[in-house]
Design a protein around this nucleic acid. Structure first.
Length: 108
DNA sequence: CACATGACTGGAT
DNA sequence: AATCCAGCCATGT
């Protein structure tokens, strides 16, 4: 298991997130067995540039679009989510519990 | 090698 | 309910 495996696993899970759904860094980290390494998930997504990774579907546990600043255009992430049917107000996902997609449950 | 920072989280205040 | 603090781990200075 080299380091790239972690990144690859993160990308794989994120790619499996269905449209109109979102998940959290902690949920992905937990699914990968590193629940205390949510920060590493964010770091992994940092290298998702160039890959076909819908990173806009990954937010923090509050449903807050903390990573929007890394999309080049701060409004791009929110626009993409809204376009998929997710309600976003002031960088915050509305009905977060309804659109939340947990790989540890949905990906059984 | 030590310290600071970050796309986080959970518990405490 | 809002804010603060400590834990985690990789990367940069």
């Amino acid at each position: 298991m080299d380091k790239t495996s972690f990144f690859n696993d993160v990308f794989e899970v994120v790619r499996l997130i269905p449209s109109g759904r979102v998940t959290s860094y902690g949920a992905i980290a937990e699914y990968l067995g590193a629940k205390r390494s949510a920060r590493m998930v964010g770091w992994a997504l940092n290298g998702s540039g160039g890959q076909s990774i819908p990173a806009h579907r990954v937010v923090n546990r509050n449903g807050l679009l903390t990573g929007k600043t890394h999309f080049g255009e701060p409004n791009k992430m929110e626009r993409l989510l809204v376009d998929e049917g997710i309600s976003v107000v002031e960088n915050k996902i509305q009905d977060f519990d309804q659109v939340f997609w947990d790989p540890a449950i949905e990906l059984l």
